[in-house]
């Protein structure tokens, strides 16, 4: 999952980047509204965290500008002013949720998780497909009710595919959303992850949940429960 973080306070930005990266998110962080808008227009993100009090272009205007570009990824507001006028204005401008400073990192993670899942159309914290169930808060895969161990990268790939069920996801898109920008994009590594995932999800090859679409990418083909 690739996130855009726009926060002007250096220390806080660094803390958030670290906490989010520890949680396996890919984070692009910038310190003002104009840079935030540039990033949002140039790259594809799964969600954004935007502080309301930003230099150059304030948070509200940034959110409006992002929505005006028809970007639909969820936006989480950080606000220091714990008043409803600001919250209502931010949510009205197109944000999806807010967190008031100072916050617990855990709260940001929980809200982000909920936003990402919700954006993909899931109301519950777990993504359920046939006998497959991915608990996004505990980062745990269950197959027929039994827990199955996944590596961090296997989890990321599976979560991304499950959050876009029925859509063809190119290898390029997957790398963009799962790896740092300077990562050496060797598609063979992805193929290895997908092969291992298929074995773990469906050892008997009865469900075949991940299709390979020749020349285009992968598709998670099981309809959600």
């Amino acid at each position: 999952m690739r996130l855009l973080l726009v926060e002007d306070e250096d220390l806080l930005r660094a803390q958030l980047v670290k906490a989010l990266e520890d949680n396996d998110y890919i984070v692009d962080s910038v310190q003002d509204g104009e840079l935030g808008l540039y990033q949002a227009n140039e790259f594809s993100y799964d969600a954004a965290i935007i502080d309301l009090g930003l230099p150059k272009m304030n948070g509200i205007d940034l959110i409006k500008a992002i929505r005006a570009e028809a970007k639909v990824f969820p936006i989480l507001i950080l606000t220091a002013r714990d008043n409803w006028t600001d919250k209502v204005e931010g949510l009205d401008a197109g944000a999806d949720d807010y967190v008031v400073k100072p916050f617990q990192i855990e709260e940001i993670k929980a809200r982000l998780n909920a936003l990402l899942r919700r954006a993909a159309g899931f109301a519950k914290p777990s993504l359920d497909f046939a006998h497959l169930s991915l608990d996004t808060s505990a980062k745990q895969l269950n197959v027929s009710g039994k827990p199955v161990e996944l590596t961090a990268y296997e989890y990321k790939v599976l979560e991304y595919l499950m959050l876009h069920p029925g859509q063809v996801i190119s290898k390029m898109e997957l790398t963009e959303h799962l790896y740092e920008q300077d990562y050496d994009r060797d598609s063979n590594v992805l193929e290895v992850f997908v092969r291992r995932l298929r074995q773990k999800l469906d050892p008997q090859e009865t469900l075949k949940p991940i299709d390979t679409v020749r020349g285009q990418g992968y598709r998670f083909n099981v309809p959600p429960n």
Binding site: L12, L16, A19, K101, P102, I105
Partner: peptide, 13 residues
């Protein structure tokens, strides 16, 4: 509040 957020982040990490 921003410094408070920083302090809060520091102790958590």
């Amino acid at each position: 509040k921003t410094p408070l957020a920083v302090i809060s982040g520091v102790i958590q990490q």
